[in-house]
Simulated scan of single mutants.
Amino acid sequence: MVRISNNLVGLLNFLTFLLSIPILGGGIWLSNRASTDCEKFLDRPIIALGVFLMLVSLAGLIGAWCRVSWLLWIYLFVMFILIVLVFCFTIFAFVVTNKGVGEVVSGRGYKEYRLGDYSNWLQKRVSSDKNWGKIRSCLQDSKICKSLEDKNLPQSDFFNSNLSPIQSGCCKPPTDCNFTYQSATNWTKLADSTISADQDCTTWSNDPNSLCYDCQSCKAGVLANLKKDWKKVAVVNIIFLIFLIIVYSIGCCAFRNNREDNSYPRWKGYP
């Protein structure tokens, strides 16, 4: 009679295997239709995740239900490595996102963001030409600034708007530049003598393909958004980590059952 722990491990991995199929299929579909750098950037991680889940779930499924101890051992080893990685990433996420807050601007409903307020590690990652090129492409593809322009807000409504970090950092010039508002993505520069020393003021362009995408404030806005997302991911990771530890414990029981059954066959009536 198959024991409860073997049944649970097999069932959980069967469900994981079913989950891996749409994930893998979605990654392959995305790779075939990807037309932008942003879309191409996502397909490989999705395919890798789908393949990983499929292989690990098959190892756990066969190992538990078919009593194949060496496959169950591989499954437990991978699970242990995954637990360590999730734990380390969760701690790392809390550490690197501990710094950095938006600055309240007088008379404005939105906040502004400074790149120097964030951790050095995040600054280096986002400032890399290779990384920023991909991020910039994604920002343009998302049309987040165009959607803001399409609202055609009057100046008072725009200044009172609760802009997202990316909208605040990438779609408009910093408030210190003292530019004159024409529309959400169109601002008139003042004479050079009155422009702030902030280099973002000279980087700003009314060209819809440029705007403030190369500004330090835009990179800071991306990090502010990333920080918010990583905080959520870290909380989810804690729940996921608890789940992994429970599954790993059940898997250890199933592995012990396999070893006992392989070493000491249970004859009818033998305890």
Rank of each mutant, 00 (worst) to 15 (best):
K146D: 12
N131M: 09
F179Y: 15
K189R: 15
W132E: 06
S168P: 05
N186T: 15
N98C: 01
S156A: 15
V95Q: 11
C171A: 08
N120Y: 07
L139H: 03
P174G: 08
Q167K: 10
N120W: 00
L115W: 03
Y118H: 09
S161T: 13
F94Q: 13
T185N: 12
L148V: 06
K111G: 04
P154M: 04
N120K: 14
Y118K: 05
N98I: 00
I135M: 10
K151A: 09
T188Q: 14
P173C: 07
S127T: 14
V101P: 00
T90P: 01
I91W: 01
G133R: 07
Q155Y: 04
N120D: 15
L148D: 04
L163P: 01
I166S: 04
L190Q: 14
F87C: 12
R108I: 02
K99W: 03
N178K: 15
C171H: 06
D176V: 15
R114F: 11
P174C: 08
Y118C: 04
G169V: 06
I166F: 00
N131I: 07
L190I: 15
W121E: 15
I135T: 13
D176R: 15
V96A: 07
A191S: 15
F89T: 14
Q123M: 05
R108H: 13
V104T: 14
L115N: 01
